Simulated assay, not measured.
Amino acid sequence: MAYGQMATVYDRLMADSPYPQWLDWAEGVWVKKGKPQRIMDLGCGTGSIAIPLAKRGYRVTGVDLSAEMLAVAYDKMRREQVSVTWVEQDMRELELPQADSIISFCDSLSYLTEEDDVQQTFSRVFAHLQPGGTFLFDVHSPYKVLHSFGDQTFTLTEDEISYIWQCFCDPLRMEVTHELTFFLELESGLYQRVEEVHEQRAYQPYEIVKWLREAGFVDVELTADFTDLPPHETSERLFFLARRP
């Protein structure tokens, strides 16, 4: 699922997201596993991770399905006066030069709602890594989908933007449908109504580990919530590290 009109307000909505923690977690892994020169960021969105990585001296390619999100990322890159290569592409059909490390944070892979899509993506990632390269990503845990989202409604009311965010959960598939209705203030003072629907799915950790190994990855490690510790019952974000031999 690609972000459409929501792309223009995405950064405002995600202002409190822990981007520095994703960056620190990734660099902590690279200190141990080898520092990459070329990084590919799958589901890069508006570049909130790709651009800081470029500022730290990495050669970064940002890949996203949404042209609208990439347009915002490009404008941000120009303002920051750095260089990132932006590519509009489906991660399931990845076709780019190889990288030393491929990352996918902010639960981008949770948008793959079919098992075959996850497995296909893992195969494409494996093919796009240099030997010894690392694959780093995080996804929503089953607990988060079933209990933190569940069948809940979230709201926000501000002067320039308001939203109604309804979550509908399928517990058998561990899948959540996000129905989002935004009201965006225009220059005229009137409000524009924007609606988007997003679907995300959680998978059991052992399934993800199995699919990574079937794709050819080795040294698969699983931690949770930005720590070096394994997940527990109420962990919300699962982190995976895998290496191409």
Rank of each mutant, 00 (worst) to 15 (best):
Q5H: 14
M6F: 14
T8H: 13
V9D: 04
Y10L: 07
L13E: 10
S17Q: 14
S17Y: 11
Q21I: 00
W22R: 03
V29T: 07
W30T: 07
W30P: 01
K35V: 15
R38C: 10
L42R: 07
C44R: 08
G47R: 03
S48D: 15
S48W: 00
P52K: 04
L53G: 00
R56I: 10
Y58E: 03
V63A: 02
V63L: 01
S66C: 05
E68H: 06
V72D: 01
Q81N: 14
S83G: 08
T85W: 02
D90K: 01
E93W: 09
L94Q: 08
L94C: 08
L96R: 12
P97Q: 11
A99Y: 07
D100I: 01
S101L: 04
I103M: 13
D107L: 09
S108G: 06
S108F: 03
E115C: 12
Q119C: 08
F122N: 03
S123W: 06
V125L: 02
F126I: 04
A127W: 05
A127E: 15
L129I: 06
L129Q: 06
P131E: 04
G132M: 13
F137T: 08
D138H: 03
V139H: 05
P142K: 03
Y143A: 01
L146K: 09
L146S: 09
S148C: 05
S148H: 02
G150W: 01
D151Y: 01
T155D: 11
L156W: 10
L156P: 02
D159Q: 12
D159R: 09
I161K: 05
I161L: 15
Y163I: 01
D170A: 06
V176S: 13
F182E: 01
E185S: 12
L186E: 13
E187N: 12
E187C: 11
Q192R: 13
R193Q: 13
E196I: 04
E196K: 04
H198I: 01
E199P: 00
A202I: 05
Y203G: 00
Y203L: 05
Q204T: 06
Q204E: 14
P205V: 14
Y206Q: 13
Y206R: 13
E207L: 14
K210T: 11
K210M: 13
L212M: 13
A215N: 04
F217T: 10
F217E: 08
V218R: 12
D219K: 15
L222G: 12
T223G: 08
D225G: 13
F226M: 06
F226L: 09
E233F: 11
A242R: 08
